[in-house]
């Protein structure tokens, strides 16, 4: 009997341990919100965890940026730890909805995919947020897009792609995602003879190129750079940034429609990796978050680490992000119609 009791005590201790480790590491610091809000005189971040929502699974570019920035940001704010909260799903929508609904106490912030501007422009019903009303903290880097083509593809340059009579398969993430819309819009702008295969998340598209199923993909330059560096493919077009030896999409523009579309993709590329707090966050708290964010992105130690992790940094303030979002949201009906047609699944 004594043995049984000892064993049960052991088990209960194990349970207790797991509970406490949960409290300190993986939980949303929601319960502490009242305390944070009420201590207006002191530092509201002191003794608190910063909850950083990332709208993708762990391992992607958004995740890497958030983990690196979050670690420095929480120190500069005087908080305890940063808790990275990966909420993937629905092409960033689930996580962004969560950020929108989170308590606006400054203790919860999150990455926002600029591509969601597309979804809002065409009034996607699953969006529970208004992207123009987020409290923008800042931008870590622009996210230029490039069209990468595998070495085995039958077309090897933009000129060949434009002239291709054969249908070229391009991989993208799920229908409605920014990756899908970018690709669809690019095809629309240049009247490309392509078939877009959706559903390839993360680096799955690269793997599909290696298998020879798809020819290429149009996505963020940085995420596909290691694939190109390893000699499996090369860029044939870039938008919203410069890649040495690769032509910019504007060089191929010949119609107004194409110009408008390329400009829109360029605007979203410029927005890139942005971070926001829920709407209605106290201006004083926002001020602190923006200052700490800017200080983080100018910290030499941070920059060295970012370079080591191959994460380009090209910072901009929350105000700039706000203006960029407003400008991108201001599109003529004609452009909106083009986007709406793009997501209409046959």
């Amino acid at each position: 009997m004594l043995k049984k009791i000892t064993i049960l005590i052991l088990f209960s201790l194990l349970a207790g341990c797991s509970q406490s480790s949960n409290d300190s590491n993986a939980n949303q610091p929601s319960g502490s919100a009242e305390t944070a809000g009420s201590s207006s005189s002191g530092n509201i971040f002191a003794g608190e965890n910063l909850n950083y929502i990332v709208t993708t699974n762990a391992g992607g570019g958004y995740d890497a940026y958030a983990r690196l920035i979050g670690r420095y940001l929480v120190k500069k704010l005087g908080g305890d730890n940063v808790v990275i909260n990966n909420i993937p799903g629905g092409g960033h929508i689930v996580g962004t909805n969560t950020l929108w609904k989170s308590k606006a106490d400054g203790l919860t912030i999150g990455t926002v995919n600029a591509g969601l501007i597309y979804n809002q422009l065409i009034g996607v019903k699953t969006l529970q947020f208004d992207i123009s009303k987020f409290s923008w903290i800042g931008k870590a880097a622009g996210e230029p897009r490039s069209l990468v083509i595998s070495e085995d593809c039958q077309v090897q340059s933009m000129e060949e792609l434009l002239a291709s009579v054969e249908v070229i398969k391009l991989a993208s993430a799920g229908v409605g995602s920014a990756s899908y819309l970018d690709t669809k819009l690019l095809a629309e702008a240049f009247d490309l003879n392509v078939d877009i295969i959706p559903g390839f998340e993360g680096n799955e598209g690269e793997m599909s190129m290696m298998r020879g199923e798809v020819c290429g993909q149009f996505g963020t330059t940085s995420s596909v750079q290691p694939f190109v560096d390893s000699g499996y493919g090369h860029f044939i077009l870039t938008v919203g940034g410069e890649v040495e030896g690769v032509p910019n999409a504007m060089e191929f523009v010949s119609t107004d429609k194409a110009r408008r579309i390329v400009s829109l993709i360029g605007a979203l590329s410029e927005l890139g990796r942005v971070t926001a707090a829920p709407p209605g966050t106290d201006p004083e708290v926002m001020e602190r978050l923006r200052e700490a964010y800017t200080a983080t992105l100018n910290d030499p130690e941070f920059l060295a680490e970012a370079e080591k992790m191959k994460l380009p940094i090209d910072a901009a303030s929350g105000d700039t992000v706000d203006q960029l979002v407003m400008a991108a949201m201001n599109q003529p009906q004609e452009t909106i119609d083009i986007i709406a047609d793009s997501v209409r699944v046959e």
Binding site: A58, G59, G60, D63, A64, N86, P226, D229, S230, M309
Partner: peptide, 20 residues
């Protein structure tokens, strides 16, 4: 998937270049 993120943070960059 979580481990992949952790590797990236540790400065190990998984991907095709790993073989080289």
């Amino acid at each position: 998937a979580i481990l992949l993120g952790a590797f990236v943070m540790l400065g190990i960059q998984p991907g095709p270049a790993m073989a080289l």
